[in-house]
């Protein structure tokens, strides 16, 4: 199994077989990502850091960001896992097209996503007659933030989980089926436990994407403290008057993202081990 191989490969330091010159572009690549983050910290007013991140508006934005990101991650799991399963295991006409369309938010500028959502869930959007019937109004609500985040984050979960499903293969599933297990039993007892580490990292990816969501939220949900103004929107707004606050909040956002990634990496490591 691939997972077993990974676990074995990590323990002793083995000869990588990489040419030495490869380290130059690799180091440049790492620098490109890390240097701007470092530059951000050099501009930070550490004496005001705590005061800046604990202001009312900052705390409201942080709380809202965490709540909405968790909610949209749950939606991504509920809708994305079945979608990934269907795409990885089924064969149907137009499958390639469906996959391409579903993954489109990966490459779509988030603002375009926001406009598209507006024309779908907005007051004059495609679903407006249905939503009017039930008296639902989504625009300018926290629900709009969650929808925008789910829209941009879902493809991350689907693409990453579909890859895991294909790597894991169907062998155990087929064995279980021949032994008389029903499809739901196979799914619950074989498939999902097998891809769990992959599912966890896929969920983290979509959580991180949801946390950083900006363009679609701004376009679709608006910006109001405590209701729709998430941390990225707050950072963008603060930048106008108080760049120090924007930098401090950026670091908070980075810290949250790093913490979540590290914790889940450990969880999925343990699951593999």
């Amino acid at each position: 199994m691939t997972m077993g191989e990974q676990a074995r490969g990590r323990a002793p330091r083995v000869y990588s077989g990489l040419p030495r010159w490869l380290f130059v572009p690799a180091a440049l690549g790492a620098t490109l990502v890390v240097l701007p983050l470092f530059a951000l910290t050099t501009r930070l007013d550490w004496t005001r850091f705590f005061e800046l991140i604990t202001s009312d508006s900052s705390m409201a934005a942080l709380r809202l960001s965490l709540e909405t990101s968790v909610a949209s991650t749950v939606i991504c799991i509920v809708l994305g896992v079945p979608l990934a399963l269907v795409l990885a295991r089924e064969q149907f006409p137009g499958q390639a097209l469906v996959r391409t369309l579903v993954l489109l938010p990966l490459v779509l500028p988030p603002v375009v996503g926001g406009i598209a959502l507006l024309y779908t869930f907005g007051r004059r959007g495609l679903l407006a007659p249905v939503m009017d019937l039930f008296g639902i109004q989504i625009a300018f609500s926290t629900a709009a933030v969650v929808i925008a985040q789910s829209f941009v984050a879902l493809p991350f979960l689907v693409v990453s989980l579909e890859g895991t499903l294909r790597t894991v293969g169907r062998r155990y599933e087929l064995v279980a089926a021949t032994l008389g297990a029903r499809p739901s039993t196979v799914l619950g007892r074989i498939t999902l436990p097998l891809v769990l580490p992959g599912l966890v990292s896929a969920a983290v990816l979509s959580f991180a994407r949801a946390l950083g969501e900006f363009g679609a939220t701004l376009t679709f949900a608006g910006s109001l403290q405590g209701v729709t103004r998430t941390l990225p929107l707050e950072i963008y707004l603060q930048r106008v008057t108080d760049p120090d606050a924007a930098i401090a909040l950026s670091l908070v956002l980075i810290a949250v993202a790093v913490a979540v990634t590290l914790v889940t990496a450990r969880i999925s490591d343990r699951a593999i081990g």
Partner: peptide, 20 residues
């Protein structure tokens, strides 16, 4: 009591134009 406080006047316009 606005439902949204936008970053730029263009964002306000966009929301009125969209009928939101």
């Amino acid at each position: 009591t606005p439902v949204s406080e936008e970053q730029a006047v263009t964002d306000v316009m966009a929301k009125v134009q969209a009928g939101e």
